[in-house]
Amino acid sequence: MTGIVQLQTALETKSTPSGNRSSLPVSVLLSFAVIVFAVLFSAFPSLFTSHSPELGDTSAKLVSPGLHHWFGTDYLGRDVFTRVVYGSLSSVSSALAAVIIGLVVGSGIGLLAGFLGGWVDSALGRIVDVLLAIPGFLLAVVIVSSLGFQTINAAIATGVSAIAVFGRLMRAEVIKIRGAAFVESSFLSGGNRLQALIFHVLPNAGRSVLVLAILQFGTSIMVIASLAFLGYGDPPPSSDWGLLVASGKEYPTAPWLIYAPAAVIVATVLSVNRISRWLKKVR
């Protein structure tokens, strides 16, 4: 489980006080708040809404947003905010699963390629080239069509299409760090290549990989939402964010059916990207 090791080590380096640490910018605080809400929505949806995500009030179809229905209601009279809240779990957790797949497989490939070099590097390099050559979204579509239309398969497909990005970054980082004077110095201290890899290369590469993983989490939310939008995720009445937008587009007179879930997607991804950028900057 190299990916987990990296994540942990990356988190470790993050939490240690170092260098010029400035106070948290407001935008980053706000971003963290959005993410906390997204996680809470997923974990305890019933805390945030008293409506049912599946049963509508037929007397209140297509009600525009207001105090009673924050995001309005849909064509069956279901509360859109409730559907968004209940859709968080699969939207967020499938993106997380996708990132973990991409991170573990991709970083593993990059690590081996960068550290071992030679023919291993060439062979793995070609695999990464192939994955890069096929447009990520197209690859995800083909995989999900082969595996079957379910959100979990969409997550797997998204993860596979992210392997190349992680592989490339990890390889570049490993090669950069492998040549650093402090790695060489660890050989002079009597260390071997494996020790250099575990104790020096991984902790130092972990940070950039973590930054990418967070960025990729945002991308995965979008890709999975796009797959759901095309109908390649769990079918209704499930309420994946992308699926909500797709069903909303049938009712041009009720634009909130599109805008409300779309705004949630954008806010979440924007927050994730902001945090990733902030982490990249803070040393």
């Binding site: 004077a181 402090f182 790695v183 110095s185 020096h200 902790p203």
Partner: peptide, 14 residues
């Protein structure tokens, strides 16, 4: 043992 030229590169920042 060796002492490197550049002490900014020879110590692991982590």
């Amino acid at each position: 043992q060796l002492v490197y030229q550049n002490p900014f590169a020879s110590l692991d920042p982590a």
